[in-house]
């Protein structure tokens, strides 16, 4: 489904990703862990198509297509969804409006008729119930004045409505209390399917108690330096990231 080969990315003349390789197959859950500044958000934003990042080498194939050639909106329509680490506030644009426009843009891309207001309302309310989101949410401006937890829940809500085939969650767990974390995990788990893959980026192992990954990768200084099963996450939790640093230093 997703194949990243030798990805090099620069931002403002500073190389951040330095030859990153990663393969995610259909239906798999991969977790990427790494210390601050290792390039986690850069990877997720590059996959979503942010143009401030310059890809200097490597390639990304998504469902047989050259992902880097596509505009962000087309990537979304092809099935990529990024839950932002820091969701953007957009005053004056109602949540419901953003969601309906987004869903219908995706449907149009796939030659489907737009969803009627009533149908959309029904769909939204269903998902909101599961995520314990209040009705008033729909009318509020996108993320404006939302608490950290509300913003993250909104990302998951959008993901549920848009039903991506590859969902990238950039530290969706950071800053959440345990109740909110469980709600978010429940939202993710309810979407698990043989056709849907997840790339769960996290700083803490905590989330992985609720969302069990098939694979865990460690990113350090712009590269995947270690991969393994879910037990790798526990190892990291115990030993901290210092251990990876030492190991890498020893190799050089």
């Amino acid at each position: 489904m997703l194949e990243i080969r030798n990805l090099h990315v620069k931002v403002e003349d500073k190389e951040i990703l330095k030859g990153l390789n990663l393969t995610v197959n259909k239906g798999e859950i991969h977790s990427i862990m790494g210390p601050n500044g290792s390039g986690k958000s850069t990877l997720s934003q590059v996959l979503a198509g942010k143009d401030a990042y310059e890809v200097t080498d490597g390639e990304v194939i998504f469902n047989g297509k050259d992902l880097l050639e596509l505009d962000p909106e087309d990537r979304a329509c092809e099935g990529i969804f990024l839950a932002f680490q820091y969701p953007v506030e957009i005053p004056g644009v109602a949540n419901t409006y953003l969601l309906r426009e987004a869903l219908n843009a995706k449907r149009k891309y796939n030659d489907l008729k737009p969803l009627k207001h009533v149908e959309f309302g029904k769909l939204a309310r269903e998902k909101m119930k599961d995520l314990e989101i209040d009705e008033s949410f729909l009318k509020r401006s996108v993320n404006e004045g939302f608490s950290g937890g509300e913003k993250k829940r909104n990302e998951i809500f959008q993901m549920q409505i848009l039903e991506p085939s590859l969902a990238i969650l950039d530290e969706t767990d950071s800053g959440l209390d345990i109740d909110a974390l469980q709600v978010v995990a429940k939202g993710v788990n309810s979407m698990k399917s043989p056709d849907r893959s997840f790339l769960i980026i996290t700083h803490y192992q905590r989330l992985l108690n609720y969302i069990v990954p098939d694979y865990v990768h460690v990113i350090y200084d712009g590269q995947i330096v270690k991969s393994g099963g879910k037990e790798l996450a526990f190892e990291l939790e115990e030993k901290g990231y210092g251990w990876i640093e030492e190991e890498k230093a020893a190799k050089v």
Binding site: A48, D71, P72, L82, V88, G92, V93, K106, S141
Partner: peptide
């Protein structure tokens, strides 16, 4: 025009022009 917001809208599948229109309309 807030580029971060435009990117956010586009990352949800909303075409560039539409995203810009939405931003201006909110204004």
């Amino acid at each position: 025009m807030d580029d971060e917001a435009i990117f956010y809208l586009k990352s949800r599948g909303i075409p560039n022009k539409e995203a810009r229109r939405i931003m201006l309309q909110s204004f």
